[in-house]
Amino acid sequence: MKGIALGQYYPSGSVLHRLDPRMKVIIAVLYIVTTFLAKNVTAFALLLVSMLLLIAVSRIPLRIVLSGIKPVLMIMLFTMVINLFFVGGERLLFEWKFIRIYVEGLYQAAFMAIRIVVLIVGTSMLLTYTTTPIMLTDALERLLAPLRVLHVPVHEFAMMMTIALRFIPTLMEETEKIMAAQKARGADFTSGSLVSRAKALIPILIPLFVSAFRRADDLATAMECRCYHGGKGRTRMTVLHFHLGDFVALTVFVALGAGLILANRYGFGFSM
């Protein structure tokens, strides 16, 4: 378990990894909006191309990207089927008993599928695969900082997130160790009735809770010893700066959005 970062962070050292996480959040939001702008074949083609480029730039193996799509495959198929069979139109493509498939339905289904894939892949290329969860939390804290005026405890939420993220791998590692230790004493987690399996969890959960509380206590003490008193007046060790690359990236995505709007207007092909 060690060394496995939480989520899907994949350190390939690409340009995307080096972008300022704040900019990546902004761009991701922009990209999501853009996805919903697309209306005709040209626009969707543009969207698809942008996604492929994004994958190429991220230098993340296709195998990993595909495995990221797997969880939404069912939803995708479902929306496609719904669109295929239930979208009416003028140009009948195929008819068999009560099933009628129209050209419009076919396009609609394809559009929906592309949209879902682009949404998932786009946000994961920009965020989850190329940004560590800690960096992401940091970025969100800063982007949401203005909310402090409304007395939203932004820093405290971010700190809670950071600590939780920091300790999830630790707890997972700990769980594994405790499981191994109990297995070494003949514990069995995989066979028997439901009740006996639930009972088998006790030797794992109790030591896990004991150690989680101990850790929490230690951490609180350690933080207090270092005079932690919340976010007020706190400076940072790593100060984020926007670089030229960040603005270039922003420009590219704004251009993509503009291109899509133009494609909607002047492009060709079926339009929804």
Binding site: E174, A184, G186, I202, P203, P207, V210
Partner: peptide
Amino acid sequence: IRFRVGLVMQYPEYQLFEETVRADIAFG
């Protein structure tokens, strides 16, 4: 095999879970 080869893991004190020492030793 695990009963024949008894393994005491690193920092084994974190695996204790029973209410009494007796019950914990008796787990295996």
